[in-house]
Design a protein around this nucleic acid. Structure first.
Lengths: 144, 144
DNA sequence: CTCCAATCGTTGGTAGCACCCACGATAACG
DNA sequence: CGTTATCGTGGGTGCTACCAACGATTGGAG
């Protein structure tokens, strides 16, 4: 849409501006990740595993901010692509132990590089110092 | 989700932070508007009409950032609630002329007040000056 | 040791939202 | 005229975020 022709009432709302910015963010990131043949949630899961490996699916869901049931299907895909591994936990046979594979780690490096480009594109209109400010403000807003 | 326990890879991404902030924004705003018995898109349409009245449905769609076909159903609801009026344009009988009703304007005032509260809630962790900065940065990011 | 409650993965379904396409009615224009 | 474009409308799709319920399994109370 033409954000410039939007009503002022909306343009002044932080919530609306966040929405608009988020639309851009999703668009740019999805586009870049699609070239690497992955969805945004796939990246989120792999990033989570890279740092907190090994995790049960429920833990993975909580850390990555997804629903338990959605993680099932996401891990299905990632496992099919050999980017993650899923095994029954021998110590608690209700759980699945999910880990990232070496191939997954290698893939993550490529994705990181692609994502840097996406971030630059997203914040193209901001100066480097403004980008830092934005990150700081957003982090504070969401309570990090 | 617990944004604090998210992987650092994500926490550093402006796009991810925007996403998290947007989740909060949607949640807070939807909640507040629900008490006034309206969706977010309903408010967007009414805000657009208040400023640019009268508009055809296509113009309304462009200004408010929605699809033409979705505006049809949204205006249906708003018209049923007597918040907007829809008439065939006598000068171009393909068009519908959509205007906000006096009742709509009154309702908008109440909604505005409710939304101020929502914004405060959303940006509760920021100082007044930080809130201004955030709005400025986001506006610049989306090209306003 | 037994039974009950809780947890885990999984399946299925729902709701909202942003899209897209095709149609009939109408208008603009050659 | 007849052709092309625009408008509202109905229908449908895909994505994402949810929620409910189930069988398998575990842990804890008695």
């Amino acid at each position: 849409m033409d954000t410039e022709t939007a009503p002022r009432r909306l343009q002044r709302l932080p919530s609306w501006l966040l929405g608009q910015a988020n639309v851009e963010a999703r668009r740019v990131v999805s586009e870049v990740l699609a070239q690497e043949d992955l969805h945004r949630s796939g990246y989120a899961l792999m990033a989570t595993l890279e740092e907190f490996d090994p995790l049960s699916q429920t833990e993975l869901a909580d850390r990555s901010g997804h629903d338990r049931s959605d993680v099932v299907r996401l891990v299905d895909e990632l496992e099919k692509a050999a980017l993650v591994k899923r095994d029954r936990d021998p110590e608690d046979r209700r759980r699945n132990v999910v880990t990232i594979t070496p191939a997954g780690r290698r893939r993550l490096v490529a994705l990181d590089a692609a994502l840097v480009g996406a971030q630059d594109q997203l914040t193209a209109r901001l100066t480097p110092s403004e980008r830092k400010q934005l990150v700081t403000l957003l982090a504070k807003l969401v309570g990090i």
